[in-house]
């Protein structure tokens, strides 16, 4: 029983060490670390059940809120315009705004330079998310994690990869990933099942997976090229 319990877990995790795609969702960030970043905001903004308007509007319930919609707060005209256009605060819009407020809302009154570090932003967003509606109570509330895998159309999944073309393209990959499948700090991708390879590459391409180098590599590959690489690595050395 014990063995089969562990076996089940291993199967569920997709076989550790085989290079199979990790298919669990990713947390937005670390909310505890985000609480430290919040210090940059808390001079002007309040959050929590009793949060009120301060120098800035309260940020409880920010996810899913229309921009410029806290009654009684004197928003800038730019922000009001965005609210009238129906823009909603979401992970994406908040991330862009916190990174560089004036890029998203040119005339914003928020006197904040922006936060360059993506990890700090992610942690802050994870912290802020805890103070908005819970999807278990309000199913339409904003997501609380990032999907690990993209949803691909049947056509994309059906593309048969050209392994010879894949071999040609693979030279870029094998600069880092060892052809013989050894793992020296960079995970092996040799003999990876084709579908997992395709899903993982699309996850990078769609920026669902965080690794910046892989996002850059994947962003340059077409659907056919991803299929070709998958076909090549699936059979490498056989």
């Amino acid at each position: 029983m014990r063995e089969s319990f562990i076996l089940a877990l291993v199967l569920t995790l997709g076989g550790v060490g085989q290079g199979v795609a990790e298919e669990t969702a990713q947390a937005i960030g670390d909310p505890e670390a985000g609480a430290d970043v919040w210090i940059l905001c808390s001079g002007c903004h309040q959050i929590g059940p009793d949060a009120e308007i301060g120098i800035g509007p309260p940020l409880s319930g920010i996810f899913g809120r229309r921009m410029a919609s806290v009654e009684g707060f004197p928003y800038s005209r730019s922000m009001m315009r965005m609210g009238r256009d129906g823009l909603i605060w979401s992970l994406e819009t908040l991330d862009a705004y916190i990174e560089n407020p004036r890029v998203l809302v040119s005339g914003t009154r928020m006197g904040f330079e922006g936060l360059e570090d993506p990890t700090e932003r992610a942690d802050l967003l994870a912290f802020l998310r805890e103070f908005s509606d819970k999807p278990s109570n309000i199913p339409e509330a904003a997501p609380t994690a990032l999907a690990a895998l993209p949803t691909l159309s049947d056509e994309t999944l059906a593309i048969v990869g050209d392994a010879a073309y894949g071999e040609y393209l693979a030279s870029e990959c094998t600069t880092c990933h060892q052809r013989d499948g050894s793992d020296r700090g960079i995970p092996s991708i040799t003999l990876w099942p084709e579908e997992n390879f395709v899903l993982a590459m699309h996850a990078y391409k769609q920026k669902l997976r965080p690794h910046p180098v892989m996002q850059m590599m994947a962003s340059r590959l077409s659907d056919e090229e991803i299929a070709a690489l998958a076909a090549y690595f699936a059979t490498l050395g056989r």
């Binding site: 298919e23 669990t24 969702a25 990713q26 947390a27 999807p135 199913p139 339409e140 509330a141 904003a142 997501p143 609380t144 994690a145 990032l146 999907a147 690990a148």
Partner: peptide, 20 residues
């Protein structure tokens, strides 16, 4: 209608996408 898809993280079943 309101709907969503969810995936398991170690800690919880997390909403990753949805519609209303």
């Amino acid at each position: 209608k309101v709907g969503a898809s969810y995936q398991a993280t170690e800690e919880k079943i997390a909403k990753v996408d949805g519609f209303i």
